[in-house]
Design a protein around this nucleic acid. Structure first.
Length: 885
RNA sequence: GCCGGGGUGGCGGAAUGGUAGACGCGGUGGUCUCAAACACCAUUGGGGUUAAACCCGUGCGGGUUCGAGUCCCGCCCCCGGCACCA
């Protein structure tokens, strides 16, 4: 074996041996505790992996490897999230079939993951597009349907009138289709939803028990958006301002002869300040109003509705957009004071939140204020500061008391919110209510490459589930699967797929929408527990044993969608008695991104920059020929489109897999973004070489049976120093890996190696027997502690000292508190909190001894000159602070 | 605007309220070499000094404490997410 790190000579060889020995197959030792460590389900893109992806996989691998060495049964699987739009679009472009294409891409991913030595149990791998897998995705869909959690209703899709296709939100840029440039329209079609809103409260509550980054939990809470308020009914005025508002027999909300609508507010305390109401342009009541008001109003309302429909969501919600709206000609009655207020229509009120209608209080709401100013609607103050001082409107703080509010004037905001809520309930026109921002989960996709929804529409318009034993409803393998041009899924144009007869022999048609990819990734962690099961999605016992995932690792960009959906499904499955956990992921860790220095040039006069860009992206090749004053570099996320990707192949070729792994661990805290530099890997080559050199130097001292005799040896100071360092490092390294502090895990090994080198240099000439034994222990500790981070090198070194097999099968070292304790400690001497001196003292020294040593320390004494000692604070093992004046 | 995370040498970053800058990258000087690369050794927060002593120093301003990078209050800046959700 060489005395330096020469990866080309052994890394590939060890990977082969691991494979031949089935080293990474999941083990199931009796009585061992379990550890389930997993990475986010990746979509295997055609670009392959970059070193940025490895930053996710390597740390998970390190903790899994350590847990395995610690005696856990470890489940560390990997599979592929193969269904979905990116795959389909790319396959169309390449004129190939997505199934075939994805298979190739997944193989590339696997090859790259193997190349960096990640210990996945590939025997458990699958793709979400495998019929054996999506059969059970459909099965879970049916479970949701049976439990009333899957339903179909009309909903808008983004429609591209040029390409005649449905677009995903990410295919729209600035209200236009990314590809065709057409202005995107909204089109109502029937679509499938999962009723995640029914679980909103539980999804909030159960966050508390999760060991997740606070930021992610906060994002989920925001997304679910719980707010407490009051919902109540507003009557449309019969008479008064508008003769056409006379009763002509409309029936709305069960009130014969009247028009009415519900509003939701979190500020019921401001109800006396209501000076108008606003309905969303899509509000159903508008139809009735249009029929009752004069033609001029009706025309303006219609026009506004058309305009609103044409606006894309992004345009409509653009920041700082001026408020728009029209007066309907109708009035509503404020139940608090009986006053009539005008009803407006405006798109700043969303149809999809609350009741799609609001009471507007411009005195105490910025949006209403802005609207009122623009349309000259009165602004009334009904809340003021407790001290009665004048304030500028809108006054939106909840710190205050009611004014101009009848009998409620003088009450605090908090008190009146309760009282007014009770009052509304007493009147029978509404109730206090908890409202969530969360919407139901739209799963329909009018595309080919997804999991078919197992529903049959019978001739009589009924919906039936495809019988369980007929699952999966297989996606037909067809040549043409491009979007069909009429907005339906391509599946709708495959008669063999569509036409079926149900169990009673009646004719029916299959549902042709497919499920969005998030459905497939909402349960894959359960399938990994029992991936080959042909009779069930998983066996209850397997899931009971492995779940929850103990450590789930991936990027924070999935903070809401995937993680929320997976939590939702797990809760449904829990309710159905199919799993024993309410939450799928006990601990979540987000890795930082890997950024690469990316060349840009200044734009020429006629060039426009893309949104958020400072310059024009250029390739590294072109950068060489661009004049220096026009060229600049920025840190940008590694991606194929930026052309700044470093692949694991390149890194492994130049520096080695272990150097890449150790660099990824060391370069920054796990959750921080990383500025990639290949120089850093050279540093790891140097470090690994140092280990090879040290192990080589220690071979002459190495005694394989040290464990049996070291306890009987009378150890000299040198030997004790070695052991102390060994046991300190074992403790530090173990703790650091457990808490995902991989950078300090690596640095603790560096410190250890440096110390061992120093000690060896000092005592090599005349080593005692105890020193040799302590160094024997150290050699093994070094190799085993580095094994999770640099497994190839560890196995190479392990065998070089005469051991056989794999370090992964060895026990993780344990530390002995007594051995790691220092004999002597360095004590800091402070005078009035400022460091003045230090001294060495026996670790067991008494407080009195420390005080004495401190007060007589020469430099400290110089600072005590002429002062009276008032107090002495002694921190054992650390410092002495002398307070003097 | 709201929510979350940050701000420490030239750079990445360490520091249970207890010696700030561990470990590494880079730099400088040296050894090796015909030379370079690699490697190794020394040094490396700023000021100050022949050297030391000493002074300053964790975004800014206050506070608590024997002692604050760490805790509290008020600001500033950066990154991420959400964003007319009534």
């Amino acid at each position: 074996m060489a005395d330096r790190y020469e990866p080309a000579t052994f890394e590939a060889a060890w990977q082969k041996k691991w494979k031949n020995a089935d080293l990474f197959l999941t083990r199931n030792n009796e009585d061992a505790p379990k550890f389930y460590g997993m990475d986010f389900f990746p979509y295997p893109s055609g670009a392959g992996l970059s070193v940025g992806h490895c930053r996710n996989y390597v740390p998970t691998d390190v903790i899994c490897r350590m847990k395995l060495m610690q005696g856990y049964n470890v489940l560390h699987p990997m599979g592929f999230d193969a269904f979905g739009l990116p795959a389909e679009n790319e396959a169309i472009k390449r004129k190939t079939h997505p199934a075939q294409m994805i298979e190739g891409y997944a193989a590339t991913y696997r090859r790259q993951m193997d190349l960096i030595g990640v210990s996945y149990d590939w025997s458990r791998s699958f793709s979400s597009s495998d019929p054996e897998y999506y059969r059970w995705t459909q099965w879970i869909f049916e479970l949701l349907y049976k439990r009333g959690l899957a339903y179909r209703r009309m909903a808008a899709v983004n429609w591209d009138p040029i390409d005649k296709t449905v677009l995903a939100d990410e295919e729209i840029v600035g209200g236009r289709a990314e590809r065709s440039g057409a202005i995107v329209e909204k089109k109502l079609i029937p679509q499938w939803f999962f009723k995640i809103t029914e679980y909103a409260q539980r999804l909030i509550d159960d966050l508390d028990e999760l060991n997740w980054p606070e930021g992610i939990k906060a994002q989920q809470r925001n997304w679910i958006g719980r707010s407490e308020g009051v919902q109540f009914t507003m009557q449309v005025a019969h008479s008064g301002h508008q003769e056409a508002a006379a009763d002509d027999g409309f029936q709305v909300k069960g009130r014969r002869g009247t028009l009415a609508f519900d509003v939701f507010t979190t500020r019921i305390d401001t109800i006396f300040g209501m000076t108008f109401c606003v309905l969303a342009p899509e509000h159903e009541l508008i139809e009735s109003i249009v029929n009752k008001v004069g033609a001029e109003f009706a025309d303006r309302i219609r026009e506004y509705q058309v305009q609103a429909k044409l606006l894309s969501d992004t345009d409509r919600q653009a920041t700082n957009r001026e408020k728009t709206g029209v007066f309907t000609g109708a009035y509503a009655i404020n139940p608090a004071n009986g006053e009539e207020v005008p009803i407006w229509i405006a798109d700043y009120v969303l149809a999809t939140y609350g009741t799609g209608a609001i009471m507007a209080v411009p005195g105490h709401d910025e949006r209403d204020f802005e609207f009122a100013k623009k349309f000259d609607i009165p602004v009334v103050q009904v809340i003021g500061p407790v001290d009665g001082s004048e304030v500028e409107l809108p006054y939106v703080t909840k710190d205050g008391v009611l004014v101009n509010s009848g009998e409620y004037s003088g009450q605090t905001v908090a008190a009146s919110q309760t009282e007014l809520g009770v009052w509304i309930e007493g009147l029978g026109i509404g109730q206090r209510k908890i409202q969530y921002r969360l919407r139901d989960w739209l799963i329909s996709r009018q595309r080919y490459w997804g999991c078919p929804i197992p529903i049959i529409h019978t001739k009589d318009g009924e919906m039936q589930l495809a019988p369980e034993d007929c699952l999966p409803v297989e996606l037909p393998m067809v040549e043409n699967y491009e979007p069909s041009g009429d907005g339906t899924s391509p599946l709708a144009h495959i008669p063999e797929f569509v036409n079926v007869t149900d169990l009673d022999g009646r004719l029916g048609q299959r549902e042709t929408d497919t499920m969005g990819g998030f459905a497939c990734s909402s349960w894959y962690f359960l399938r990994f527990c029992d991936p080959k099961n042909e009779n069930a999605p998983w066996s209850f016992d397997a899931a009971k044993y492995w779940m929850p995932v103990d450590c789930y690792v991936g990027g924070s960009e999935h903070a809401v969608m995937h993680l929320l959906y997976a939590r939702f499904w797990t809760k449904v499955l829990f309710d159905a008695g199919l799993v024993t956990v309410k939450e799928p992921f006990a601990r979540l860790e987000n890795q930082g991104q890997v950024l690469a220095l990316t060349p840009y040039r200044k734009p020429r006069e006629d060039e426009k920059l893309d949104l958020g860009e400072e310059g024009i992206l250029v390739s590294y090749q072109d950068a060489k020929s661009i004049p220096e004053e026009d060229l600049f570099y920025r840190w940008a996320r590694m991606s194929k489109s930026k052309g700044n990707v470093v692949t694991p192949e390149e890194a492994v070729e130049l520096y080695g897999a272990d150097a890449l792994r150790m660099y990824l661990l060391f370069v920054a805290p796990f959750s921080a973004d990383v500025q990639w530099s290949s120089d850093g890997m050279q540093g790891q080559v140097r470090f690994l070489s140092k280990i090879f050199k040290l192990v080589d130097d220690l071979k002459s001292l190495y005694y394989g049976e040290w464990r049996g005799v070291i306890g009987f040896e009378d150890l000299d100071d040198a030997a004790k120093a070695v052991r102390r360092q060994t046991h300190k490092t074992i403790r530090k390294a173990t703790e650091d890996v457990d808490k995902f502090a991989f950078n300090t895990y690596v640095s603790s090994l560096m410190i250890y190696i440096n110390e061992l080198n120093d000690l060896l240099k000092k005592h090599a000439a005349n080593p005692s027997r105890g020193f040799a034994l302590a160094m024997s222990e150290a050699v093994e500790a070094v190799i085993l502690l580095m094994s999770p981070g640099a497994p190839h090198s560890a196995d190479e070194l392990w065998n070089s000292i005469g051991k056989s097999g794999f370090t992964l099968n060895e026990c993780w070292p344990t530390f002995d508190e007594k051995l790691s304790a220092d004999d002597t400690v360095t004590i800091a001497v402070q005078v009035n909190g400022k460091l003045r001196d230090t001294f060495e003292i026996d670790a067991t020294a008494s407080k009195e001894d420390m005080e004495k040593a401190a007060t007589t320390a020469p430099k400290a004494q110089a600072h005590l000159e002429g002062l009276t000692i008032r107090k002495i604070i002694v921190v054992p093992g650390k410092l002495v602070n002398i307070v003097a004046g």
